[in-house]
Amino acid sequence: MKGKEWYQADDVAEEYDAKRFSRGGRLIDRREKQAVLDAIGPVEDRSVLEIACGTGRFTVMMAERGADIVGLDISEAMLAQGRAKAHKAGVDDHVEFMRGDAARLPFPDDHFDTVVAMRFFHLAPTPRKFMAEMARVSKEQVFFDTFNDFSTRVLYNRLLPMGSHLYGRDEVHDLLDSAGLELADAEHDFVLPYGFYRKIPDAMAGQFRRLDTAIGGSSLGEKLCSVSWWNARVE
């Protein structure tokens, strides 16, 4: 099963977190969440839109910290997982999950303080259109991630169920310019790809992570990083 059909299947939604964020994947989950919080800062009383929210990992995390947040996704099965997660966390009053198309966001201009999209742009068929919509509904900030073309991810990228678009840094800058966004900050991480960490126990992942960050901290290592987080501001 490929593409949108794969992503929207009930069994994929039910197993999504367990397959990606158990074992060494827990390390990925912690690092991604920290990247979001570092970029946004205090979220209490901020209005946030998360594009392609999936099972609500980031949506619920921000709601727990006081954000008023909308999680939007194309998959009703993923949204159901997010609603259950929000209810369990007791943040139903801070979060709304809705099905929608990120290329035609059902919100007026300048509606949210911050718009977040994690694990999205590598799947986006028309990235300029999506970025333009994110910039349109944001008053201040757009935060997103990409998987990078000059990285270890190329070794297995074609084997993924939904495929994946890998970005060069010049391409990201062009994408931002086209949407009238200005890059405020960027982080580049994970020389070892996500798929590697998911295959090993959590305790072992910590050992490899120390090696990973040591390599990534070098001038060559930063260029080899497989993941980038981009913090942009509305001009």
Score class of each variant (00 low, 15 high):
Asp92Pro: 08
Asp93Gly: 01
Val95Leu: 02
Glu96Cys: 08
Phe97Lys: 05
Arg99Cys: 12
Gly100Gln: 00
Asp101Glu: 01
Ala102Gln: 01
Ala102Gly: 14
Ala102Glu: 03
Leu105Thr: 02
Leu105Ile: 02
Pro106Leu: 05
Pro106Met: 02
Pro106Phe: 02
Phe107Gln: 02
Phe107Asp: 01
Phe107Met: 01
Pro108Leu: 01
Pro108Asp: 09
Asp109Trp: 12
Asp110Met: 03
Phe112Cys: 06
Phe112Lys: 08
Asp113Cys: 06
Asp113Ser: 04
Asp113Lys: 03
Val115Asp: 06
Val115Thr: 13
Ala117Trp: 06
Phe120Ser: 05
Phe120Ile: 00
Phe121Leu: 15
His122Glu: 14
Leu123Met: 13
Pro125Tyr: 05
Thr126Ile: 11
Thr126Met: 10
Pro127Tyr: 04
Arg128Lys: 15
Arg128Met: 14
Arg128Ala: 15
Lys129Gly: 07
Phe130Tyr: 14
Met131Pro: 03
Ala132Thr: 15
Glu133Ser: 06
Met134Asp: 02
Met134Arg: 00
Ala135Leu: 12
Ala135Asp: 06
Ala135Cys: 13
Ala135Gly: 08
Arg136Asp: 14
Val137Leu: 10
Ser138Cys: 10
Lys139Asn: 14
Lys139Gly: 15
Glu140Leu: 05
Gln141Glu: 13
Phe143Gly: 11
Phe144Asn: 02
Asp145Ile: 08
Thr146Met: 00
Phe147Pro: 08
Phe147Glu: 11
Asn148Ala: 11
Asn148Trp: 03
Asp149Gly: 08
Asp149Ile: 14
Phe150Val: 10
Phe150Met: 09
Ser151Cys: 12
Thr152Ile: 05
Val154His: 06
Val154Cys: 02
Leu155Ala: 14
Asn157His: 08
Arg158Ala: 14
Leu159Trp: 07
Leu159Pro: 07
Leu159Gln: 15
Leu160Asp: 09
Met162Asn: 09
His165Gln: 07
Leu166Asp: 07
Gly168Val: 03
Arg169Ile: 03
Asp170Ala: 14
Glu171Ile: 03
Val172Phe: 00
His173Glu: 13
His173Gln: 14
Asp174Phe: 04
Asp174Tyr: 04
Asp174Lys: 13
Leu176Val: 00
Ser178Gln: 04
Ala179Lys: 11
Ala179His: 11
Leu181Val: 09
Leu181Ile: 05
Leu181Phe: 07
Glu182Gly: 15
